[in-house]
Write a protein that binds this DNA or RNA. Structure first.
Lengths: 328, 328
DNA sequence: CTGAAAGCGCTTACAG
DNA sequence: CTGAAAGCGCTTACAG
């Protein structure tokens, strides 16, 4: 069963491959009678013709693949949803998303050189060297930054803002002695340090002592130990801002183990609003992110990188806010 | 900055492109002096040459992309981990994983015809028609089944077994009136119906009444309503097998709302062992799956599909068991 | 308005 | 042992 080529479509519709190509690619600036256009299109559809991506890529030097580089850390529900939306929105433009976990020994360059994607989309910052190499090779890059850095082709989710919002919320509830529950996984450090910095800034702004930081594993014992530390000393902590909902759930569990009441003794706030958050006892207050808006922005950024005339992406506003529940 | 081609490597090492190709592809059956081999390899490395995937694909009619078709439903942590392992293991063989969410209007055929992957890997069953078309086009297919159906190139996670294990565990704890908490998302029906069937079978085997089924949304209200139903009537339910951990957390939350004690009044068991499971109050008993073993099996199946001489994959045994915690 | 031809980068059968 | 040449399927500058 040989592959169906544009030559088949050409023969069947009685035109040349040139014409088939023009019609199927919608080249409106070439004058081709409407009748011919329709015939070619009809034949292509009837035969079930799909152009070979490989040949196209070889010819143009650019595939219709969007290489999405996902960082090493565990894909959480947020990245899940992001990729989901992104895949759907870009599929509408005929672009396929190739997800690559940036881990293991395989260098990134090897992948993009081999695949020649039209766009490389980084969900975490690229190494300077990778960035340069891609740009030199003429590949469009849409990068990410964890800071508030509104550069043109960059996706920015200011992590500092997350920590700030958490402390703002806790302080508004009257807490003055606040702790920070950091993740124990080192790979999350770039996120954790920024979120913590935001929390610290907000404490300072409000005239509070900086948050007491403890790393918390995702188990009760680790969290209970942190809780004991936090409660010891002259100014016992009364509120905990956690790195994310899972860490927050661990803290809730640790508080329970130490027989402290939430939120009466110690309040807790997470980040992400995973399903388990609202089902926790007590229901977890958390920072919600507008993932679909962010995905749409990313999709638009990719499309804009490809097509000068496309609408420049509008940075989504109000992408995060606190969902207040019973744990604060 | 023009692309580096095999011609550049050839020129630089003073041989023909033929020789470059032979050396770089490790064709051992062609007699090429070791000296030449080394020189070519050294030059290729120095220049940072990466063969064009597009040209290769065009030439061979087959890319080194593995198209992994993920079903429509939300990617949970299990699929996450699976994809993660899979990507890593296949990357070692020079294969790149292209994840495609099988949703939206874009027909699957369009994607694989365009991409010409070497293998299509389905994490949910394919439509008969798609399967046939791929086979006709000479594409290797590794499929999935939710049943216990040990066909050669098929990944099988018998969902029935999951439900069976849940009921077995609950019955061993002395429960005789068991309920099933089904998901409300219709897309999960193929999984849910099989898990339920397994639960029902095990009830029957043990001489218990079939489980009372209620759909439960991921919120407390919905779960509380289900709980009220389950507790009404002459034989109040004393144990709930939930579709997965999230549904189980909802049930725990509903029980709390109805002021019932877990496990004294009603026991609960989930599936997946998500991080939130062990942090719940009480810690959730659940069915754990050996996702990494399953991923390795899948990777081996893909490699075997590509290479007759590769080791045939060994079906992992003991891929699931109950993790007993405080909720039962 | 339409077609013949070149060329993208690779591999491999074939000829030396 | 090594190279010249063909051809994978496409697009596009060019010639009619």
């Amino acid at each position: 069963m040989p592959r169906l080529t544009s030559a088949d479509v050409a023969r069947e519709s009685g035109v040349s491959r040139t014409t088939v190509s023009y019609v199927l690619n919608g080249k409106r600036d070439v004058a081709i009678p409407e009748r011919t256009r329709q015939r070619v299109q009809e034949v292509a559809a009837r035969l079930g013709y799909t152009p070979s991506a490989a040949a196209r890529t070889l010819r143009s030097g650019r595939s219709d693949l969007v290489l999405c580089v996902v960082p090493d850390w565990t894909i959480g529900p947020v990245i899940d949803t992001l990729l989901d939306h992104l895949t759907t929105e870009l599929a509408d433009r005929g672009l396929s998303v190739l997800v690559h976990q940036d881990r293991g020994p395989r260098p990134l360059a090897e992948l993009w050189r081999a695949v020649t994607p039209c766009v490389v989309l980084g969900l975490a910052p690229f190494a300077e060297q990778d960035l340069l190499a891609m740009q030199q090779a003429g590949i469009q890059v849409v990068g990410s930054t964890l800071d508030d850095d509104p550069q043109p082709r960059t996706f920015s989710v200011p992590q500092v803002e997350i920590g700030r919002l958490q402390v703002e919320h806790l302080a508004a509830r009257g807490h003055r002695s606040i702790a920070y529950a950091a993740p124990s996984d080192d790979r999350l450090a770039p996120f954790a340090s920024r979120r913590l910095a935001g929390a610290t800034q907000e404490c300072e702004r409000l005239g509070l002592a900086p948050p007491v930081v403890r790393a918390v594993d995702l188990d009760t014992g680790s969290a209970a130990a942190a809780v004991r530390d936090w409660r010891a000393g002259p100014a016992p902590v009364t509120a905990v801002a956690a790195y994310n909902d899972e860490v927050a759930l661990a803290v809730l569990s640790g508080l329970r183990a130490e027989e402290l009441a939430t939120p009466q003794d110690v309040a807790v706030i997470g980040v992400d609003d995973i399903p388990a958050a609202r089902l926790a006892a007590p229901a977890l207050t958390t920072v919600w992110q507008a993932v679909d808006a962010q995905a749409s922005y990313l999709a638009a950024a990719v499309i804009a990188a490809l097509d000068e005339s496309a609408d420049p992406p509008v940075r989504p506003s109000d992408v995060m806010h606190v969902v207040a529940r019973d744990s604060t």
